[in-house]
Computed example of a mutant assay.
Amino acid sequence: MATAVLDHQVIPGLHVAPYLSNLSRSSEVYNHLPDDADQPHVAEEHLKNLAGIFLRYNVQTKFGLHLIHGHFKLERDMVMLGKSVQEPSGCWTKPTDINEVDLENIHGHIYALTGDGFLVAYEYREGRPADMTDVKPDFFHEVIQYLQSNKLEHLLGLQVLSNEPQEKLAEFVLGANAGTVMIKETEANYGHIYRVTGWAFDQEDGIISCKGNDVHAATTKGPHKVFQDSKRIHGVRELRVALKEAEII
């Protein structure tokens, strides 16, 4: 498989605002993602090797790794777009009509490597892209080479970290109409944690640490999916009510 030449590549949603065509491709990529339960174990060796690349380029505060997965099929012209929420603190990511998206105020959040060797966002978040002027193109080139040479393209993706202090988040699936919600672990009621889905890296005294920042958790009532009927939630107030009814908060 040929590796894309990234020396002069501009990644939509990362270096510049995306176009509608980029969002359409993001939707296509999302609809081909496996469920996290169908993904194999991620070897610690690969996490540490990739952590070494992140730390060598000093981008560990900007990027992490993410287990590539989806939860449902998006309808045509819909894209997964997240927004920060408070009380509880976290992020609500839901299917959004691409024609209603403010392209100048979103950035790519999770990127997967496509068959042609390019990084494509399959989830976005509100807010302009972070400054990437100090991130060398060689960083992306090395990450892509490692994923390809170790056949990890369909397992691990690149996650853009927020500027906020990194705290462990628990994810709950609300359904195809309402999306997913990530809540700070300290503010959520949950049952069994059964999968780590996101990793951030750090180094102290020469020792590299890989922290599981994002996890999938079951509700206190048992299932991971909160609503079996995939109810539609229209706003943050309704989201809070629904999470309280489900005893998540």
Rank of each mutant, 00 (worst) to 15 (best):
M1I: 05
A2L: 12
A2G: 10
A2I: 11
L6M: 05
Q9N: 11
I11N: 01
G13I: 06
S21G: 10
S21I: 07
S21K: 11
N22P: 00
L23P: 04
L23S: 00
R25L: 12
E28H: 12
V29Q: 11
H32F: 12
H32W: 09
D36E: 13
D36T: 12
D36L: 14
A37D: 12
P40C: 09
H41Y: 13
H41N: 14
V42P: 05
A43R: 15
E45I: 15
H46K: 10
L47R: 02
L50Y: 00
A51D: 03
R56K: 14
Q60H: 06
T61N: 15
G64T: 07
I68F: 05
I68P: 00
L74V: 02
R76Q: 14
D77Q: 13
D77G: 11
L81H: 00
G82R: 00
K83N: 10
P88Q: 02
P88Y: 04
G90A: 03
C91A: 10
K94H: 11
D97N: 11
I98Q: 05
N99S: 14
V101P: 09
N105F: 07
Y111Q: 02
A112R: 02
T114L: 11
D116R: 08
A121K: 01
Y122M: 01
R128Q: 14
P129E: 06
A130S: 13
A130Q: 13
D131P: 05
D131C: 03
V135A: 08
K136D: 15
F140S: 00
H141A: 13
H141G: 07
I144C: 11
Q145F: 12
S149P: 10
S149Q: 14
K151I: 07
K151F: 07
K151S: 09
L152S: 06
L156S: 01
L156V: 00
G157E: 01
Q159M: 14
V160I: 15
V160C: 15
L161C: 09
S162I: 05
P165M: 04
K168A: 07
A170V: 06
E171Q: 03
F172I: 01
F172Y: 00
A176Q: 15
N177F: 07
A178T: 05
T180H: 02
V181G: 02
M182N: 15
I183D: 00
K184N: 13
T186V: 05
E187W: 01
A188Y: 01
Y190M: 04
G191Y: 03
Y194L: 00
R195H: 03
W199G: 01
W199I: 01
D202S: 09
Q203A: 12
Q203F: 06
D205G: 06
D205S: 12
C210F: 11
K211S: 13
G212W: 08
N213G: 12
N213L: 15
H216P: 04
T219S: 09
T220L: 14
T220E: 08
T220S: 11
P223C: 08
V226I: 01
S230A: 13
S230Q: 11
K231C: 06
R232T: 14
R232Q: 15
I233K: 02
R237P: 04
L243V: 01
E245M: 08
A246V: 04
A246Y: 02
A246L: 01
I248F: 02
I249K: 02
